[in-house]
Computed example of a mutant assay.
Amino acid sequence: MTRDEICTRFIDAVPYQLYPYQEEALLAWFGGEGGGVMVCAPTGMGKTLIAEAALFEALHSRTRLYYTTPLIALTEQKYREFRELAERWGFSRDDVGFITGNRRENPSALVRVVVAEILLNHLLGQDAGPMEPQPARGTAALGCVGEGPVSERSCAEDKTGQRPARHTPSGVAPTQFLDDLGAVVMDEFHNFNDPERGVVWELSLVLLARDVRVMLLSATVGNPYDFADWLKNKHGRKLTVVVSNQRRVPLEYVWVGDRLFTELLPAMASDSDAENRTPALAFCFNRDECWELAERLKGLPLVSSARQKQIEAALDQYRSDLAEGAGPKLRQMLLRGVGVHHAGVLPRHKEIVETLFNAKLVPFVVCTETLAAGINLPAARSCCGRC
């Protein structure tokens, strides 16, 4: 099957009208002759669909794909979503694997959903596995990174000012990780500009071989054309830049004065569609504040008795998952219309919160800022302030 045929089949499978920028990005990905595509569009405009096209192609062509994110929580969510997509498209769920610093599932899969540092580790040959003396496909020799957003030199020099024979890991990688690497998708790519972690994205782009296509996705890169010029001029990788400023749902800012969350949130919940302002996210500054606010909210009238019965029925399938640790406490909060989501919540508990919130059964999720880093929880309102 040719790439044009894969593109046509994917677009035909999309059950709704594509936005113009999505069509442009898909044509650039499947028909472009360069090293990939960079897509910048506001949150909620369907950038994930373009990433799904890369997944669709990898499964049909049987070439390896890495999908990187900056957060473990986002990696876990994409892993679940991609496994479901693979099954829906007629492939095995085991074609998709998951790797973070502390957990891995099916790590030898064709498609690996990973945190960004994992890809860099594989490119540097630091993961467990047999090492080859020559670069494997999917890697390139690392040179100096001193011209661009990262100012530090990333290569060593000997006393004569020349690079030693093994000045850095010379593209060596475990063959079981990078064989047949065809493409890399970097979600939330604006983390490239992070003062501490940005070097992870830069070195990954430098190390990837030129025949590996990249897809860079972000809502907040302010100078995408400048970045594409830098990547082409300094590292020889040409990107097609696709930018959209269209926003499907306009943003509206409301100042609520000195009202507390415990006063504001109950007023937002209503059985009337015209007056209802949920589902909503309530952002707190730390994990302790999340639990404290959720404790206060669970005693307030946030959901009707009929909605409580629906939530209870939905929670029946998760009885064993909510039986230990913070599970019983979280279950009581969910029954009263409040979920908690932060880095300290167990992955299986976060998945339950996300499922009920996306189903519009639980109207409120109390969370920290990590949830705003790309996790897919569509909300009508986002509330920020002191508890």
Rank of each mutant, 00 (worst) to 15 (best):
S92Q: 14
F98S: 02
I118T: 15
Q77Y: 04
S92I: 12
N121Q: 13
V115L: 02
T69Q: 07
R93Y: 05
S108A: 13
D127S: 11
V114F: 02
R88V: 05
Y66N: 04
D95Q: 08
A58C: 09
E117V: 14
G97M: 07
A116V: 10
L65C: 08
N106K: 11
L119Q: 07
T68V: 13
F91D: 00
G125L: 07
E117G: 15
L85I: 13
L65R: 00
D94L: 07
E81A: 15
H122R: 13
V113M: 10
Q77G: 01
G90S: 11
E117S: 15
F82C: 06
W89K: 06
L120S: 08
F91Y: 11
A86E: 03
R112T: 07
I99A: 03
A86V: 04
S61L: 14
S61P: 06
L123F: 05
F91V: 05
R112M: 14
Y67R: 03
L71S: 09
T63E: 14
L71A: 08
V115R: 01
N121P: 01
T69W: 00
E117I: 14
G97W: 05
V115F: 00
N102P: 01
H122E: 11
K78S: 05
A128Y: 14
G97F: 06
K78A: 05
L110S: 03
G90F: 08
N106F: 09
L120A: 08
I118M: 14
T68S: 10
R83M: 13
T63A: 12
L59H: 00
L124I: 11
A116P: 01
P70K: 04
H122Y: 09
R64C: 09
G97H: 04
Y79S: 07
V114L: 05
V111N: 02
V114G: 01
E105G: 03
V111K: 01
R64N: 07
E57Y: 15
V111D: 01
P107S: 10
L123E: 02
T68E: 02
E76L: 07
L123I: 12
A109C: 11
F91H: 08
R103A: 15
G101M: 09
V111F: 06
L124R: 10
Y79P: 01
S108M: 12
D127W: 05
S92P: 04
R64P: 02
R104C: 11
L124E: 10
W89S: 03
R112E: 07
R83P: 00
L124A: 10
T63F: 10
R112K: 12
G90Y: 06
Q77H: 11
L110M: 13
G125Y: 02
F56P: 01
Y66D: 05
F56G: 03
G125P: 02
I72M: 08
E76N: 12
T75H: 01
E84P: 05
T68I: 03
N121S: 14
V114N: 01
T69H: 03
P70Q: 12
R83Y: 11
R104G: 09
